[in-house]
Design a protein around this nucleic acid. Sequence first.
DNA 1: CTCCTGTCCTGCCGGC
DNA 2: TGCCGGCAGGACAGGA
Length: 281
Amino acid sequence: MPELPEVEIVRRGLEKAALHKNISRVILNRGDLRFPIPAHFQKNLEGHEIVSLRRRGKYILCFVESGEGFILHLGMSGRIKIIPAGEKYEPQKHDHVVFILSDSTQVIFNDPRRFGFVDLTHNDTWRLHDSFKAMGPEPLSNDFHAGVLAAALKGRKSPIKTALLDQKIVAGLGNIYVCEALFMAGINPHKAAGDVKAEKLEILTRCIRDVLSRAIDAGGSSLRDYHHTDGSLGYFQHQFCVYDQAGNMCPGCDCDLSVSGGIKRVAQAGRSTFYCPVRQE
DNA sequence: CTCCTGTCCTGCCGGC
DNA sequence: TGCCGGCAGGACAGGA
């Protein structure tokens, strides 16, 4: 599912339901997700109070009062379900990890495709974890601006679309929001990343921030698997300009659809790219 | 280094 | 109705 906005919505749901509660029990319904679940996963967390829930890129980080903690990646199909204390819940297929909190709230990690994973880390050293050590700036922070983007893209021959999916360039973008940001910025996804002009990068930076912020405000995008922690849906998918819109006209377009063919879908690096050939030259 | 491909896994959808 | 191929929001390893 999840790109930065969806992960942020999940983080907020977790914060609301779990912050300052104790983890009474961790149930592992299988020993591996994408990677094996670390040996001390339960031992490091059980009996400890959750003191912070953060997000970095598409990852959620949860720390307990001892300083230990874990990272969670939702992969493509991962979901967090929060079952309030006293609410009846029938366990479902792919409920791989279940946290029972001290007030009997259940936090359930469900992931059919098992591209997601958990790993242990520590509050003092998590930035050195393999998942984060080379990760690019947070796009909604002050660390992200046209200058750092230009430096990261300098000399890159790969298409700008592919480069923006690289978490080392900028954190948290995935296929949907890259397509949307490039459309908003009027940049052709095939353009070599290193050739995008400084003034265009200025615009692109703003578009990335804008689309992510608006998506968070809309509760993320719900396609297929994605739900909030309470089961409700996001609705940013109704605001997509190009993603999954092949053959349609882009918003505000005045071209003749029978001539232009509307929004195109192509494959880049094995992933679908959606764009408007007229407005993204 | 950069870049490209294949791969992990399950579920869903469209076409025949 | 049922089967099969293609595709899916991610990110890694390995090879050119």
